[in-house]
């Protein structure tokens, strides 16, 4: 896989999985859950990674 477009696509898929899981975990844990701060960190980083891939992709 050398085409930058393909790499882009695969990477985005994987980050989407990370993001999806972390969002599920965030929804499941209560506001006082001690893990919440860690989940928030992962969530922020994953969002930043997605934004990096396509800073101005058209949203549908």
């Amino acid at each position: 896989m050398t085409n930058p477009h393909d790499i882009d696509h695969a990477l985005k898929n994987h980050i989407a999985i990370i993001l999806g899981y972390i969002e599920v975990l965030l929804q499941e844990c209560g506001p006082d859950d001690p893990r919440r701060a860690d989940f928030d960190e992962i969530h922020r980083a994953a969002l930043a990674a997605v934004a990096l891939l396509h800073p101005d992709r058209e949203k549908v």
């Binding site: 898929n13 999985i17 999806g20 599920v24």
Partner: peptide, 12 residues
């Protein structure tokens, strides 16, 4: 085609 995505959808 990505098994991780299937697992995520199942989780959701």
């Amino acid at each position: 085609d990505e098994p991780g995505m299937l697992a995520l959808v199942e989780r959701i």
